[in-house]
């Protein structure tokens, strides 16, 4: 029983983080109809900046994290302004290819900055455990869950309630009509990238607090957001939460029980579980399970 609960809580932690990564994809997709393949690189840079602000600059962790988020947000907005804005009006597929280019530029940057070392975040929870209702849990799992869900909630509330958030949603629905109401859609695009950058940065920090730390190839973890998006719907911020958690828990349970119950599957099966779920969902419901609307184009 204790093993099960611990496994589920670990699943919550990684699942919430996947959801947070997915939110960044969703926000950029809604604003521009483009799947942003540069997102994983932004995430890894978030981890780098958190580490840099903590260890090199010497900021306390609670300040290093927002500083890193702002840095990545600015970087993302710059990428949008320089590389993506000229693509406005071009087919989404062409624009998505440009994001692949941006990914490589940022990835090379991350390699330069991080090198071949493994960096750590200087987070206060480390590998400590706490006892909650008699079950011993890793603090990191709880921290990931709380931080990721609060961040997603903040983004969702911003979109739902604020004037700018409303303009962003309007732009997602009908760009021309939004323009006719006086919305500066260029700013909406930039802001979408900035928010995606900030959430990617935060997610990078959360990924970095795992036992292994972060190296440039950790960027691949961000691809776990793709199954989340498929499950949750590419245009739904709220949909990322149940989808992310479902996938996180499935992955975690597989990691806990598969070696005992299905050893013949071999090692590291948990890593492919999200993608197996994605394939299943695509076969059954191509528009996602938690998504609200149909996605028009990919």
């Amino acid at each position: 029983m204790e093993e099960l609960i611990a496994s589920v809580v670990r699943g919550l932690g990684i699942g919430s983080t996947y959801a947070l990564i997915a939110v960044g994809f969703v926000i950029v997709y809604r604003a521009t109809d483009v799947v942003n393949f540069a997102h994983p690189a932004l995430m890894i840079l978030g981890a780098y900046y958190t580490s840099w602000f903590t260890f090199t600059v010497g900021l306390p962790f609670v300040l290093a994290v927002p500083a890193a988020m702002v840095s990545v947000a600015v970087l993302a907005a710059l990428c949008e302004r320089i590389a993506m804005r000229p693509m406005v009006g071009e087919p989404p597929f062409a624009a998505a290819m440009v994001t692949v280019g941006v990914f490589f530029v940022l990835f090379v940057l991350a390699f330069r900055l991080i090198g071949t070392t493994v960096i750590t975040m200087g987070d206060p929870w480390g590998l400590e455990r706490v006892t909650v209702l008699g079950v011993r849990l890793f603090q990191v799992d709880l921290a990931k869950t709380v931080i990721a869900l609060v961040a997603i909630g903040a983004v969702a509330a911003f979109l739902k309630r604020s004037r700018i958030g409303l303009a962003m949603r309007a732009t997602a629905l009908d760009q021309e009509v939004a323009m006719a109401q006086g919305v500066k859609v260029g700013r909406v695009f930039g802001l979408s990238w900035a928010i995606a950058g900030a959430t990617a940065g935060l997610a990078g920090m959360l990924i970095g607090t795992a036992a292994g730390g972060v190296e440039p190839v950790t960027a691949l973890v961000a691809l776990k957001a793709l199954p989340v998006i498929i499950l949750g719907g590419l245009d739904s911020v709220e949909g990322t939460v149940p989808a992310g958690i479902a996938i996180g828990i499935a992955e975690s349970l597989t990691r806990t029980y598969q070696p005992a119950y299905a050893p013949w599957l071999g090692a590291n099966v948990d890593v492919v579980v999200p993608y197996l779920i994605m394939i299943l969902v695509l076969m059954v419901r191509p528009y996602g399970i938690f998504g609200t609307r149909q996605v028009q184009r990919i």
Binding site: R163, L166, A167, R169, A170, L173, D174, E176, V177, A178, A180, Q181, G182, V183, R293
Partner: peptide, 25 residues
Amino acid sequence: GQVMEGRRVFAEFTVEENLRVGGHT
């Protein structure tokens, strides 16, 4: 101000949200 051809209301928005977008500026 303009009322575009074909109405073009934000179908997924509530009436009030539509109006609020109109008041964006």
